[in-house]
Design a protein around this nucleic acid. Sequence first.
DNA 1: AACTGTTTACGTAAGC
DNA 2: GCTTACGTAAACAGTT
Length: 399
Amino acid sequence: MLSAVKMEGHEHPDWSGSYYYGETECYSAAGNSMTSYMTAPGMTSTGHMNTHYMNPVGLNGSSLSQSSGAAVQPGAGMGGLGAAGLPPNMSPISPPPYGNVPVMSPVYGQGCGIRSREAKPYRRSYTHAKPPYSYISLITMAIQQSASKMLTLNEIYQWIMDLFPFYRQNQQRWQNSIRHSLSFNDCFIKMPRSPDKPGKGSFWALHPDSGNMFENGCYLRRQKRFKCGKNPGTGAKEAAGKPGSEGGSVTGSSSSSGPDSPHSSSPSPPSSDLKGVDLKPHRVDPLSSSPARVPSPVAHSQHLLSHHHALLLHEPAHLKPDHYHPHHPHQPLYAFNHPFSINNLMSEPQHHKLEPVVQYGGYGCPVSGALAAAKTGLDPAHTDTNYYHCVYSRPLMNS
DNA sequence: AACTGTTTACGTAAGC
DNA sequence: GCTTACGTAAACAGTT
């Protein structure tokens, strides 16, 4: 039985015209729900995997074109995969001059064997389809790919738009959602700017304990939502606040003190290391009489950034770019190469810094348009035709 | 004014 | 069917 994941691209003018619609804007998976993708059917001969999404982009560890404070270091970022880390179905391609760019070798319908049917009415590009990643995933990816492991809101916007043309439209809508996600989710922490880096907005980073929100590196829907510690000593929250406690970093609904409520939060940071960093304890837990907000982090802003870097030195290795070793047996960054892993989004950073090196072509064909656009000064959006040429063949819907 | 950040509310869909 | 994760809209306040 096949179920479909709605693509939610319906309000985009780009959907019409140059794309093909057989039916609803869906891409299907060989299974139900997003977890179907986790089974990596696209890696098999039955491949109904939308390989475009499996490897939307090879980023080569690049950062934002405007990433002011996030200079990417070689070897930094998301534990980029070199060829050695590629899933079985991925072939290392080095479109010059961008180095190793993992590409799902089969654009959907090719490598999937039976899927290479004519696919004429179903043949379409998902260039501007909504990526199957949640906003939380996107934010997480954006932050994690940055060398400094923190980005401003605008940098997050840019990163998302650089990678996903879908998000070049309706910006007000999704950017509002991004802001909401940042504020709402405990897994994101706000790091005030240092005085020597004036500008708008704070830096956003990942909560050090939120490392395994996306289990197995799957950046689809989370199984559990990360919530930082509630009350020290209150069971589940305690676990959530335990650094390095992978099982506890994501609260389980069964073990947490309450449902995934916007009101469930912690009056105190889960990590003592995070004093001064806004860990969003300010949402009032109606069940708690504890103070709703910690003192403003601004007072500590002077060393917050460096403090955060120091934090990174003590945080779980999966957040440490410098600790990434492609062949290290304990390479922590979602060593499981999930088809929706960011490992498939981010290839090994090597030569290109501060630029979106490779755009995706229809979520699966990383190509180099963005860099060219960046270099030529063109709006990447206008280079779509250069690198959005991969066509998605709509999978056969088994009856 | 525009942007950033917080919060509330509501709807949808996945997962159990 | 219930709970939870997520998406969206909107109001509002603070900041640049």
